[in-house]
Amino acid sequence: MTNAVVAHREPSTRADFTIDQGWESYTGEEHAIWRTLFERQEKILVGRACDEFMAGLIGLGVAAHGIPDFRRLNDVLMKATGWQIVAVPGLVPDDIFFEHLANRRFPSTCFIRTRAQLDYLQEPDIFHDIYGHVPLLMNPVFADYMAAYGRGGVKALRLGALHNLARLYWYTVEFGLIATPAGMRIYGSGILSSKGESIFSLDDPAPNRIAFDLLRVMQTKYRIDDYQETYFVIDSFEQLFEATRPDFAPYYRELAQRTDLVPGTVLPSDRVLHRGQGRP
């Protein structure tokens, strides 16, 4: 998934759509909302989140006490994998988004949801971006995958294939699962930052869980208004990174000849890890 294009830049926004986080301006209530979100995910994700995410969370020092200061996180992140967090006012144009990723800069929003939005928010907030995304940027292989995705995004824009590449982001970075010796685990940020989907993605019999295949993923549409009907499961982050190494131009040409698949589709060629029952 990529960020939707915004209509204009605010006067305080730089040419690359970055702003100052303004950490000192967060209120006590905003820090309290972070604590509420953090503490409930902390309980749910034990035995559900992949080890790499949990290690990244600890390594970064992201904790329940309040909204993190990007300056402190960047000191740690830069030393670990050469990444930086840059603050943005909200969704940014696709070309700007990809340019940041390609240069190992992760654009994060600064605002935090209200208490009325604890369980659902249409637009990503700081909890989704920092808690959900950034810990895995401490992992060298996943960090390289994200940079490769950014470079691929710049090319996809030029080739008119953004819709295909957006599906790869959606089904990996946002809603990906990984097979481990201990069982299936979560690595997608959209799941990791969601109380309901953290449980649904692994425990509910409704969704399909299908082994990752690059072209299959990029052929599959997604919905943004409900839990996923299909999750794609990688074997390792190395597998994911290797899948992004080839030139995607031939893939885009092949995909142009294929019919898009609706999210709940199961093909005879799929390696199905769990055949879902569908939602009532």
Results as ranks from 00 to 15, higher is better:
T244H: 05
G188T: 00
N208C: 03
L177A: 03
V173T: 05
I234L: 11
E238C: 12
F248Q: 11
A249M: 09
R245S: 14
E197V: 10
E229A: 04
F241Y: 13
G190P: 04
L215M: 06
F237I: 02
D204I: 04
I234W: 01
V233F: 01
D260F: 12
P207L: 01
A182Y: 02
P181L: 04
D260T: 12
F200P: 03
Q239N: 13
K195G: 10
T230K: 04
A206V: 12
L192H: 12
Y251Q: 15
S194W: 05
S201R: 01
L255C: 13
Q257P: 01
I224R: 09
P207S: 03
A256Y: 09
A256S: 15
G196K: 04
M218Q: 06
F241M: 05
G176D: 11
S236T: 15
S198F: 01
D203N: 04
Q219F: 03
A249D: 14
F212C: 05
L240M: 07
I210W: 00
G190D: 09
L255Y: 06
I210G: 00
I199H: 04
F241V: 12
T230E: 07
L177V: 01
R209N: 10
Y231L: 04
D260L: 14
S194E: 08
A256P: 12
F200R: 00
E242G: 14
I191F: 06
R185I: 02
S189H: 05
G188W: 03
L192M: 05
V217T: 07
Y222H: 03
E174T: 02
T259G: 14
A211W: 01
L215H: 06
A256C: 05
R209E: 06
Q257D: 14
R185E: 06
S189N: 01
L192P: 10
E174N: 12
F212G: 11
F175S: 10
R223Y: 07
T259M: 12
A256D: 15
M184P: 06
E242S: 14
D203M: 01
I191C: 08
G183D: 13
R253V: 10
R253S: 09
Y187L: 12
A182S: 15
T230M: 07
A182N: 15
F212Y: 13
Y231R: 00
F248E: 11
I199D: 14
F200I: 00
T259L: 14
G196V: 09
D213P: 09
L192E: 04
E229Y: 03
